[in-house]
């Protein structure tokens, strides 16, 4: 994935079954963001792979004051990339099982 300065990773092991999964977002390089993030903490949240959209979660983080509006695309992209990877891995596991 492209280096956005924001890293999103799984906060729990993916059992490949549940739709809602815990994820963790960390700012790795604040210089890559246009605005100043609130702090350098890790933000843990749950993401529903079937219902949630990365753009909405990014906007919620901005509403909550973690990031500035100008970084919404960067945050959304970081989440989207990770979600795509999780989905891809699940598909591959499913194919292997069949």
């Amino acid at each position: 994935a492209e280096d956005t300065g924001v890293r999103v990773e799984l906060a729990e092991e993916d059992d490949g079954q549940k739709s809602s999964i815990a994820m963790r977002l960390c700012v790795e390089d604040a210089k890559k963001l246009k605005g100043k993030p609130k702090d350098n903490g890790a933000i843990e949240f749950s993401f529903d792979l079937h219902k949630d959209h990365p753009e909405d979660v990014a906007q919620e983080m901005i509403d909550s004051g973690f990031f500035q509006e100008c970084d919404s695309k960067t945050v959304a992209k970081s989440i989207r990339d990770r979600v795509a990877l999780i989905k891809w891995r699940r598909e591959r596991t499913q194919q292997a099982n069949e």
Binding site: D39, N40, F45
Partner: peptide
């Protein structure tokens, strides 16, 4: 420090925990 919890009006919960300084300086 301890973790802080923020609940967005949409219902999603964000749990913020401080990252140790040493980890931030890793390449």
């Amino acid at each position: 420090g301890s973790a802080m919890q923020v609940v967005h009006s949409a219902g999603r919960r964000f749990i913020v925990s401080p990252v140790p300084e040493s980890r931030l300086q890793e390449p």
